[in-house]
Computed example of a mutant assay.
Amino acid sequence: MKLLDISELSKSTGIAASALRHYEEKGLITSIGRRGMKRLFAPDIIDQLALINLGKAGGFSLDEIKTMFGPDGRPALSRQKLHARVDELNRQIERLNALRDMIRHVAECPAPSHMECPKFQKLIKISSKRSLGNSPKAPAWSRSK
């Protein structure tokens, strides 16, 4: 079993050494020793880092990702948390699809200017209300194409 020092691990994973040190400080990964001043890691840390990256890509915070590993560093995924994240991703997708449709409409709108477009006016009103109230609902204009 060849141990990887932090620079080798960084090079093989593309994760900056500073991020690896940060992950270790947060308790997401554990070094198993040192070679001089460099931290050493077991080869299976690469899979653990891949799971951390997957969690980050899925929108989980590092603190949430930390709870997804058991004391031995192996995944201990909560299906309930995963389902909740899927639900949130679906809400994000719905909002992004609605935003895409609205931008497309504004780009193709036959009104002489954007400010004369009724849907654009509606978007502005909804956007200002959302930024003030932080409403998680899909925009109303997305339901009236």
Rank of each mutant, 00 (worst) to 15 (best):
T67I: 14
A140I: 13
Y23M: 03
G73W: 07
P112D: 11
I15W: 05
S31F: 14
A16V: 15
H114S: 11
L62A: 10
E88R: 07
H83W: 08
L123H: 02
S135M: 08
A50K: 08
A138T: 13
L51E: 11
L28H: 02
L40W: 10
T30A: 11
S131K: 07
Q121T: 12
I45E: 01
Q48M: 08
C109R: 09
R130H: 08
P118N: 08
E108A: 13
S142T: 01
T67Q: 11
H105A: 09
L82P: 01
K81I: 13
V86G: 06
K81R: 15
L40R: 07
L20P: 00
D5S: 13
V106M: 11
G14Y: 11
A98E: 06
A138F: 12
A42H: 04
S113R: 11
T13C: 11
I15T: 13
R100N: 04
A98S: 11
A111R: 09
P43D: 04
I124V: 10
V86Q: 08
Q80G: 01
C117N: 10
P112S: 15
T67D: 06
H105L: 15
L20M: 03
D63T: 09
L49M: 06
L82E: 05
Y23I: 00
A98L: 13
E88M: 10
F60R: 04
A50S: 13
E24T: 06
G36I: 15
R39Y: 00
I32C: 13
D47K: 05
G27W: 04
D47W: 07
I32S: 10
R100L: 03
I15Q: 01
A138D: 11
I93C: 10
I45N: 02
L77P: 03
I29D: 00
Q121S: 15
A76F: 02
I126K: 12
P136N: 05
K38D: 06
D44H: 03
I124Q: 08
L82Q: 05
I32T: 02
E88P: 00
H83F: 12
D5M: 02
G70Q: 03
S128T: 04
A138V: 15
E8Y: 02
K11Q: 05
E94W: 03
L62W: 14
L54P: 04
R39F: 00
